[in-house]
């Protein structure tokens, strides 16, 4: 119960910030919350199940394009478009899982990387439909969900908070459930889990689909809330970002992805004021984290202060 209280506390703070933050940071925080939802999806697979994917941009983009193309070409309204995004993510991650889970370790990383790259190139290849690198804008009129205009600052923040809160609570519940504990056990010692009678493949498949689904939902929401869909979100960079955020915040902690996304977002935001080479910050952070703090921020907190931190 204490765990739920702490996480609900974070949501309460975020709600309070809605009324107090200046416009610039208010907009940033909305973005951070959606991206953190993406990171939480990534964390379920990487942090809890121990599968390091280098291809999550594929799922993020599947959601974003499922939603965006649904609105643009099928004339869907936002709610079914979001669902279409979620469904595309689940299907794509299920298919990729069925193939990639036949490998492990380094091969799994490369296979996911390659499939995501193929996905990115596919978006470019069908440029007539996807508008390729240029992307397309989702008009304000198409972003009205149940009478709420999602392009308005305030509504957008609340929508982002709802998404974030849902992902946070689902993550928390999941990792404390029997299913989640088996995932952690798989991360620790896969062979032993199998010899306790659990179907390891089925668990990994489910984990990858939930992770991919959450990433896709975040991608769909990102496109809908900020009104833009583009190929950048399918590129390698967007596979590396959630890894970076989760490593920084603490892999295998429920709060870690949010902390990592928040820090890195502002770090890169500050950096891009100084130089166009802002990805340098991401590179340096990746190296320093792997070298000196593989546990991340919340991992340290867990080690030092509260061993039961979920």
């Amino acid at each position: 119960m204490r765990a739920y209280a702490i996480h609900a506390g974070l949501l309460a703070i975020l709600l309070a910030l809605h009324f107090t933050l200046p416009a610039y940071h208010h907009g940033n925080l909305a973005r951070v919350m959606v991206l953190a939802s993406y990171a939480m999806g990534y964390n379920l697979l990487f942090g809890y199940t121990g599968l390091l994917s280098l291809g999550h941009a594929l799922f993020f983009a599947a959601g974003m394009y499922g939603m965006g193309l649904g609105i643009q070409h099928l004339g869907l309204s936002p709610a079914p478009a979001l669902l279409l995004g979620l469904a595309s993510g689940a299907v794509v991650s299920g298919l990729l899982a069925a193939l990639a889970l036949r490998t492990s370790g380094v091969a799994f990383m490369i296979v996911t990387l390659m499939f995501a790259q193929a996905g990115y190139l596919t978006v470019l290849y069908f440029g007539e439909v996807t508008r390729g690198d240029e992307g397309f804008v989702i008009q304000q009129a198409q972003r009205v969900l149940w009478g709420v205009d999602l392009s308005a600052e305030g509504n957008r923040y609340i929508a982002a908070l709802l998404l974030f809160g849902t992902c946070l609570m689902v993550s928390l519940w999941l990792v404390r459930s029997a299913f989640g504990r088996v995932l952690v056990a798989i991360r620790e010692n896969e062979d032993r889990v199998r010899m306790l009678g659990y179907d390891v493949f089925a668990h990994k498949l489910a984990a990858m689909m939930i992770s991919g689904g959450m990433a896709a939902l975040a991608g769909a929401a990102y496109g809908l809330l900020f009104g833009y869909v583009g190929a950048t979100f399918a590129s390698v960079q967007y596979s590396i970002f959630p890894l970076l955020w989760v490593l920084l915040g603490g892999a295998g902690t429920v709060l870690g992805p949010f902390i990592g996304t928040l820090f890195m977002f502002y770090l890169i935001d500050l950096g891009s004021d100084l130089t166009t080479a802002y990805m340098l910050i991401a590179g340096v952070a990746l190296v320093l984290l792997t070298l000196f703090a593989p546990q991340g921020v919340m991992g340290e907190v867990r080690r030092r202060f509260w061993r039961e931190l979920p």
């Binding site: 088996v182 056990a185 010692n189 032993r192 889990v193 010899m195």
Partner: peptide, 16 residues
């Protein structure tokens, strides 16, 4: 010996 090194003793047995 193939226990879950990073998990508590009770969690090891609970998993089983």
């Amino acid at each position: 010996t193939s226990v879950f090194a990073g998990l508590s003793v009770a969690e090891n047995v609970s998993l089983a």
